[in-house]
């Protein structure tokens, strides 16, 4: 008997299963209780009415109501351009900064700072700075480009500006972090093989930056998708920036319709997974081979 149990333990250890794996338990249990369970609970709640009768009525109601359904389009209208813009601007800058550039550390440090400001502070600052009597409008009027202040806050522009301020630095850091890891010899090799600067970028650097770009886009999209405080504070939360997270919040905390709020949260999750999944799918089509360079 001891013989047998010993060999079982050895066999498990051979496959990497031993006592060390117990260390995963606290984290797995925590996420199970606070992430997976609430999610399933929400899923269950979403397929019943407020009185508890099962059915997909919440989803039907959401998609049947124009005002509710339009939040999806409004969210995408903000999140996709914001993510594309943030990552799009990051690519050439990361390309320029990827080598040994003077003051690189200062630049990257400056880039991290806005990420810590948080959406609430940025929104508050934007109301002042972009407002009708803010510095931005004052400057434009002083130069004489405009004679009446531009309406830059409490609309789509305000929310977009906030998404760029909080999102762009993080996107750039992600893309730059990845680009800095690309072996500079690869570009040199391409040069000695006769590829000019633009061809090197197109055929070597860009494909190698793609994994970083994908991750940056996914994270930028997810962050922009959930835009909540800025949509309320610098947006027009009952009009053009009534994004889906506002709809979910109102259902839960203004109408106390938890089943409906859960249904909206599930729809949000499904939409995010759909976008994230398709981005990764496209990437796996575009990029083959390993992410690191060949041979150390």
């Amino acid at each position: 008997m001891p013989e047998r149990s010993r060999s079982l333990r050895d066999r498990l250890a051979e496959r990497g299963i031993d006592r060390v794996l117990w260390l995963l338990l606290p984290a797995a249990a925590l996420l199970g209780m606070l992430f997976v369970y609430p999610f399933l609970y929400g899923l269950g709640l979403s397929v019943q009415s407020q009185e508890g009768t099962p059915g997909i009525g919440n989803y039907l109601r959401f998609f049947g109501d124009d005002f509710q359904r339009s939040t999806i389009a409004k969210t995408f209208a903000l999140a996709i351009p914001a993510a594309a813009l943030n990552v799009g601007i990051s690519i050439p800058i990361a390309y320029k900064l990827r080598g040994p550039v003077r003051h690189k550390r200062v630049i990257t440090t400056l880039l991290v700072l806005p990420a810590t400001l948080g959406t609430v502070l940025v929104a508050e600052g934007l109301i002042r700075y972009f407002g009708p009597i803010g510095w931005f409008n004052q400057l434009l009027m002083a130069i004489g480009i405009i004679d009446a202040p531009l309406q830059l806050t409490h609309n789509y522009i305000g929310v977009m500006a906030s998404l760029i301020i909080t999102g762009f630095p993080l996107s750039l850091l992600l893309v730059l972090g990845h680009a800095s890891g690309i072996d500079p010899d690869l570009e040199r090799a391409a040069a000695t093989l006769g590829a000019g600067p633009s061809e090197r970028f197109r055929r070597v650097i860009l494909p190698l930056m793609l994994p970083g770009i994908t991750i940056a886009f996914v994270l930028a999209f997810v962050a922009a998708f959930a835009v909540f405080p800025s949509a309320v504070m610098v947006g027009n939360p009952s009009g053009e920036t009534r994004v889906i997270s506002i709809a979910a919040y109102q259902a839960a905390f203004e109408r106390f319709d938890y089943p409906m709020a859960s249904a909206i949260a599930m729809i949000m999750a499904a939409l995010q997974f759909a976008v994230v999944g398709s981005v990764f799918l496209v990437r796996s089509r575009l990029y083959r081979g390993s992410t690191s360079g060949a041979k150390g």
């Binding site: 072996d183 090799a189 083959r288 081979g289 060949a294």
Partner: peptide, 14 residues
């Protein structure tokens, strides 16, 4: 033509 010490083969191309 140049041959690099770490070969510098393009990892994304066969």
């Amino acid at each position: 033509g140049m041959v690099f010490q770490n070969y510098a083969l393009f990892p994304h191309l066969n």
